[in-house]
Amino acid sequence: MPLLSVRNLTTRFATDRGVVRAVSGVSFDLEEGEVLGLVGESGSGKSVTALSIMRLVPEPPGRVTADAIEFDGLDLMRLSEAEAREIRGARMAMVFQDPMRSLNPVLTIGRQTTEVLRRHQKLDGKAARRRAIELLEMVGIPMAERRLGAYPHQFSGGMRQRVMIAMALSCNPRLLIADEATTALDVTIQAQIIDLVKRLQRDRGTAVIWISHDLGVVAGLCDRVNVMYAGTVVESGPIRRLFHRPGHGYTVGLMGSTPRVDGAAAHRLTPIEGLPPNLIDPITLCPFLPRCRVAVAACHERPPAPRQFAAGHWAACFADLVR
């Protein structure tokens, strides 16, 4: 049984201009200890997918529905808010994009790192402190003990993100969701953080959903990738296969706009032309059609159904890209 199983997740937001379908019918499984990438341009519904799983979508204006979201033997859709709070931080945790803003500026690092431990593991002050020091050392913060009295503004972005990771992993969650966790950092720091997550993930067997708009970042870390566009998963497959035999016009476009990380010869960087569709209007055909460079006749007639190319590799695309 997979650790996480999402079926037909749909999240809408009521806005002044109409109902935004941020996520429409997303389904996927995540195995124990697996690292799944979630890629797509900005606005494709990656964050909302993550927040929906974490049960952190504000309702209203949001509205989350799903046939099922099963996690670690629980049906997340049926949990009350109080029950969800017991899971968050303990069995699943999340790291956010902006390390400059995800720590409270007026509380010490010590206060913030011990808060989770007191909350879920019921540690007393001393034990929580000791554990917090271990955790900060684990994520590579020098002289962790002395840093407990420091405030977030005394830390650089990379160091803050390390603190966030320490906090997220402090109760040994089975699932870690990292939402653009390295996007705000510069390239060398980004690589360090990715290495750190990779190491911790391997040591602890934590399953990870790694969200990024950058296929290159995902490539170094993930086993499998879901490509998202306009609130739907348009292609899913093992990372190697996806790179060598992309099955969806959008994936091809994404790779064209991503620097190659596998050392292949210099690659032209061509951003995908056009803009993603307005999520308020109903989408009947393939959402990527207006921007697609490989569209065929069928694309203009009906929406594409997912086609399986190999075990665990499918795409919702009519074009015969994979042979």
Binding site: M54, L56, R85, E86, I87, R88, G89, A90, A93, M94, F96, D98, R101, S102, L103, N104, P105, V106, L107, R111, E115, V116, R119, H120, M164, M167, A168
Partner: peptide, 23 residues
């Protein structure tokens, strides 16, 4: 963001209001 981040770690509303927001 830090309020959402605290919620993502399971913090209770009273805790969020008293230790994160009030300050």
């Amino acid at each position: 963001v830090y309020v959402t981040a605290a919620r993502a770690l399971g913090a209770r509303p009273t805790r969020i209001v008293l230790s994160h927001i009030l300050r």
